[in-house]
């Protein structure tokens, strides 16, 4: 076990001692700062005193739209809005504006997709680079099994993602506080589940947003890792993985009329479809999606392991 920790430390050293990884970290921090500056300079300060009026007006408008002919999932969404807004009036809880601490942290959670891409870049290169540098020959002539070498690289890649998420949260929180004040720290998040409004801890809400986004992250990073292992070409692995991540939602939208699309990985990476909207294909359940995800995950990992263990190293 001490040996395995050593391997992970090695991989970490190789990740963080390279300029590329540091640049990606700086880009993330830069992105957060940019979002903060735009938010601060472009949005007008919401009229705090009159928020009750604004919410009442919103409820009226929403109720009007409910009478129109609309698809089911939109109606559901509107109903949810009404319920939450009524709860706000009842319990005197201000809505979370985008120019508040938590509003900002919530907004920057979109950057998890950027972290996905950065982690894909790490995953695509972490093994392929050893081949292109030629260092794989010195790496594999140690009393360590190839499985362990591969495993340590995979763990180190995921640790990089975790590190980036922590940076995202911490920088967003601190910057949000500096720009918009820390007074809204205790504001709760209002969740709407099974027709009821529930107060939730904001940190928990952000964590679950990150977590749901991370499902796609983990799957695509594992995919990139597999591509990198099988083809030993980092550009190919990174390119295809990013292309699929970007293009998948469009492709799924086009194909969602077909029943078989539910077996496609990307139809299952967005688990919010079970809590907010309706599932992509009729009859899909959370359990189904988790099973599909697990099957893909096992295939990716198994393929990486088998190919890497069998391969003749002739780099």
């Amino acid at each position: 076990m001490a040996n395995f920790i050593g391997l992970i430390r090695n991989e970490n050293m190789k990740i963080y001692r390279r300029i590329g990884s540091i640049i990606m970290l700086l880009l993330l921090v830069g992105g957060i700062i940019l979002m903060g500056v735009i938010e601060k300079t472009t949005t007008e300060k919401a009229n705090d005193a009159n928020w009750k009026q604004a919410v009442t007006k919103e409820i009226k408008e929403d109720k009007k739209t409910l009478n129109e002919k609309l698809p089911d999932d939109i109606k559901k969404h509107v109903k949810r809005n009404i319920a939450i807004n009524e709860y706000r009036l009842e319990h005197n809880i201000k809505p979370i504006q985008s120019d508040s601490l938590w509003g900002f942290v919530d907004n920057t959670s979109d950057l998890v997709s950027v972290i996905s891409i950065f982690t894909i870049i790490i995953a695509g290169g972490i093994l392929a680079s050893e081949f292109s540098w030629g260092t794989i020959k010195l790496l594999l002539i140690r009393p360590v099994s190839r499985t362990m070498v591969l495993f340590s690289k995979y763990i180190a890649t995921l640790l990089y993602a975790v590190f980036m998420l922590v940076v995202l949260f911490a920088v967003s929180w601190i910057l949000g506080g500096i720009l918009f004040g820390f007074e809204g720290v205790s504001a709760p998040y209002l969740a709407y589940t099974d027709g009821k409004v529930v107060e939730q801890n904001m940190v928990l809400h952000i964590m679950s947003t990150y977590g749901l986004n991370c499902i796609s992250l983990i799957m695509m990073v594992t995919f990139a890792f597999m591509m990198s292992t099988v083809f030993r070409n980092s550009s190919l692995a990174i390119g295809i993985s990013i292309f699929l991540t970007m293009g998948s939602s469009i492709a799924i939208q086009i194909l969602h009329k077909y029943d078989w699309v539910k077996y496609v990985l990307f139809a299952n990476t967005d688990l919010t479809q079970y809590t907010t909207g309706t599932p992509l294909v009729e009859g899909m359940t959370l359990g189904f999606s988790l099973t599909v995800l697990a099957v893909y995950f096992i295939i990716f990992v198994a393929l990486s392991l088998v190919v890497f263990n069998k391969r003749d190293v002739a780099a």
Partner: peptide, 25 residues
């Protein structure tokens, strides 16, 4: 050494040795 002695160029020589030392007991 198999073929050329390819090391991690972005690390110092010492870090390279530390790297390999962690892989053996």
């Amino acid at each position: 050494i198999v073929e050329n002695p390819e090391m991690y160029k972005f690390l110092s020589g010492y870090k390279n040795l530390i790297h390999y030392s962690r892989m053996v007991k």
